[in-house]
Every structure is written in structure tokens, then in C-alpha cells.
Amino acid sequence: MTELRQAARIARTSALYEVLQPGRLAGAGAQLGVQIFLTWCLWRALYDAVPASSGLSREQAVSYAVLATLYGRLRGPDRDVAGDTVRQHVWSGSIVYWYLRPVTPRRYHWLRAAGDQAYGLAWAAVTYAVCRALGLIGPPASAGGAALFGLTLLLGQFVLYYLLALVDVACFWTLRNFGVLAIIRLASSLFAGAIVPLWFFPGWFRAISSWLPFESSLHVPLSLYIGRIAPADAGRYLLVQVVWIVLLALALRLAWRRADQQIVVQGG
């Protein structure tokens, strides 16, 4: 029980950081609202002259685009602002405190990420309800599609967590990760279909994207939601997600072990 309370305390850090600053909270809400509204306008305008394109009807494409905007909120607040990333701690030497606490650095990192995700999910869920009420997002194509949407979305977040955690832990060696992190963020937007649904891209692009871990985080769940992927075809995508999770989890485990062995703080 004490352990659970301890975990909850760690997990809620980012949420408290934002909730206790009304300016930051209001800003985040206003930004999300404006982004959703403009995305909605943009995609409706694109479909003004055509009823469907690349197998997506206007309703499907608009729902996909608005949901993709919500997805951006899923990762929770920017922890960089709070100064609690591995890079910042390695850089300043305060990473040593992660090794002095009664929680292992690996567990602390995981709990913080889980808390961020949960907070982001709360934002996304509330905004989803509002968007549904306003008619900005259509209903799921089927009950099966909705269930698989939830499952693939969850698995996709695990894939992303492991990937980003690997980049974080790499800072024990590289000291800086701005470049890799920025590339992963951009690649995860492009190859996940957050900027444009992957259905609009040519076959070769979709083939590349199918080999990368990003499409499982967004493209697959949203395509299931809007009915562009039939629930009967979801098995292959689920398998790919599980394979990525296993591979990345093993790599992360190895990286943490190596990092624990070679940590150097301020040269000593």
C-alpha cells in the first residue's frame, strides 16, 4: 500500500506542475481548442471539391485529423520545462539523486512517464467528449473497431514510451539528445500519420512506414476507429505492436543496466 502511494506521488508530479499553474493550464486548454478548430476547418476545406479521397470520406478524414490533434496531448505536459529529464540531470550532475532515492531510476522514469500519459489521457478523454458533443468527431465505425482502437492505442503508447526512454537513457553516453529527440518527434508525427493520414501517401511511403514503430502509435488505432482498417484485419497490426514492444523493452532494459554501471557525475 505504501509502495502504491509512493508510485502515485511520483506519477502525479507533472500533472500537479501544470494544474497548480492556472496560466499554464488555461494556455494549454486554449491552445488545444484553437488547434482543433483550425484543423477541422482545414480538412473540411480540402474536401470541399471531392466527396472522398484515398478511400477516406470527408467525415472519416476530419475525424481522423481531429483525433490526431488530440493524440498530441496524450504525452502530457513537456517535462523539459520542469527540468526533470535524464538529459538535464546528467548535464547538471543531479542525476546522482536518482540513485540515492528508495526508488530505482528505471522505476522512477517509468512512473513519471506513466503519470504523464495518464494526465494526457484525461485531457484527451475530456476533449474527445466535447468534440463528440459538438460533432467535430464522428462515432467509431463499429463496436469492435472502438474496442480495438482502445487496445492498439494503449499498445502504441508503450511502443512510444520505450522508444523515447531509450533516447533519454542514451544521454548517459551522448550527454545531449536534442537532435535525436527532435528527429523521433518529427518522425513519429510523419510516419504515424499525425500530420497527414498515411492513406494519402504513395505505396512506397506506406511500405517504409510499416517497418517503423511509429505507425502503430496513431495510424493503426485511428484507422480502426474510423473504419478504414476492418477489425478482422487488426491481428497483423497487433502482432507488429507486440513485437516492437518486446524488442524495445529488452533494449531499454539493457541500456539501463549499462547506464547504471558506467554513470559518472561531474567527473568523479
Binding site: 551522448t174 535525436v180 528527429i183 500530420i195
Partner: peptide, 27 residues
Amino acid sequence: DFFFMILVGAIWQVTVVAFATVLITRF
């Protein structure tokens, strides 16, 4: 990091080009 940041610039713009390409070819 320097090398990756150069790549970031290109990839960032590629995302913009991606949307523009979709626009030209699909609408």
C-alpha cells in the same frame, strides 16, 4: 547531436512538403 540537428531541419521541412504533396496529388 550536430549531425542529427541538421537532419531535423530537413525532416521538419519534409513534413511540410508531405502535406503539400498530398494536397497536389490527392486534391
